[in-house]
Nucleic acid binder design. Structure first.
Length: 305
DNA sequence: AACCGACTCAACCGCCTGCCT
DNA sequence: TAGGCAGGCGGTTGAGTCGGT
């Protein structure tokens, strides 16, 4: 049983690419293209690599106009906004960031940006809420977080405004619209078909039928434990009474944002804070929920230091 | 200088989907 | 219509690097 491998794994080289291999692959593709067949490409150019490996090397490293590292605040902003909205669909997010690869963005999110957000949210959570919690079991933490959530809608709105309101950032209007249009439109223009059903499988299935050129993996998304991966599915709770596209867009984003934020808090409440960047902060490891905390107010997404 | 843990990121793995026959 | 194949994708891994002790 099991799936047949795409190539003879014993006959191909694995691991880091040499400069010679890079040169051969790059030069061939620049002259001849991929020939629409990655699997046979290694044979054609005489390197002992899996076709998929060639494809990845080209897409993530060799192709022209790629940027590596040094993500700007604007790029952070786009990544966060889209992640909140559509979850870990890295290829779609990458398509909004010229020169960036899905792999780069995924790595950046997992290693830095998520921690950055968690850290900020955690600090704000600690400093600015006035709901006094007794630290309970792990299972009760979520309901405590939910309590906090229910009582702080206004505060959520403040944070939401920071994310979606261009006037609060240096982000240009046209770039804002770049975020909103291509990705979100399907959800607005087909409201009767997409994500209006609380049955998540049906919603996901509907998404597949109508948007198969986007990411194919909403089903796997919904079973993932990653932060925010169910965000899009939350739309069903918010859009039913909104016919105006702008309202739907905002409510959709808001729903995703709230879900994202809830999961951030959940991580903060349940995880070892050492893991998420609270080193040296004022947050105690074991009893931080016992502190007086005021309402969750304005808190910048970025360090501009 | 040596050790060690944390971090980064290139690369791999395996699943899903669409296309072709 | 079913099955096989290749492309595309997201999750994960592990070697290399960095920074602290």
């Amino acid at each position: 049983m099991g799936r047949a491998p795409c190539c003879d794994k014993t006959a191909v080289k694995k691991g880091p690419w040499s400069t010679e291999e890079d040169a051969v692959l790059k030069s061939y593709i620049e002259k001849h293209g991929t020939g629409n067949n990655w699997i046979s490409l290694p044979q054609r150019i005489g390197i002992k690599r899996c076709g998929k490996s060639c494809r990845l090397r080209w897409l993530n490293y060799l192709r022209p106009n790629l940027k590596h590292g040094g993500f700007t605040d604007e790029e952070d902003y786009i990544i966060c906004s889209l992640y909140i909205t559509i979850g870990s669909r890295w290829s779609i997010i990458a398509s909004q960031l010229p020169g960036r690869t899905d792999n780069d963005i995924k790595n950046y999110w997992n290693t830095r940006l998520k921690k950055k957000l968690l850290s900020k949210q955690g600090k704000a959570f600690h400093q600015q809420l006035n709901v006094k919690f007794e630290r309970g079991t792990t299972s009760s933490s979520s309901s405590q977080i939910q309590m906090f959530h229910d009582e702080n809608t206004k505060s959520n709105q403040t944070l939401y405004n920071q994310v979606v309101d261009p006037s609060t950032t240096s982000f240009a209007m046209e770039e804002q619209s770049m975020i909103k249009n291509p990705i979100l439109e399907p959800f607005y223009w087909e409201p009767n078909n997409v994500l209006f059903d609380n049955d998540h499988d049906a919603a996901a299935s509907s998404y597949h039928h109508h948007h198969h050129h986007s990411s194919p993996s909403l089903n796997s998304m919904s079973s993932s434990s990653s932060i925010g991966t169910n965000s899009s599915l939350q739309m069903s709770h918010y859009t039913s009474n909104h016919n105006d596209h702008g309202d739907q867009q905002d409510m959709f984003f808001m729903a995703g944002f709230e879900n994202f934020q809830a999961e951030l808090f959940d991580e903060i409440a349940n995880n070892n804070t050492e893991e998420i960047g609270f080193h040296g902060t004022e947050m105690p490891n074991n009893n931080y929920l016992d502190h007086d905390i005021s309402s969750f107010i304005d808190y910048p997404l970025y360090d501009n230091e």
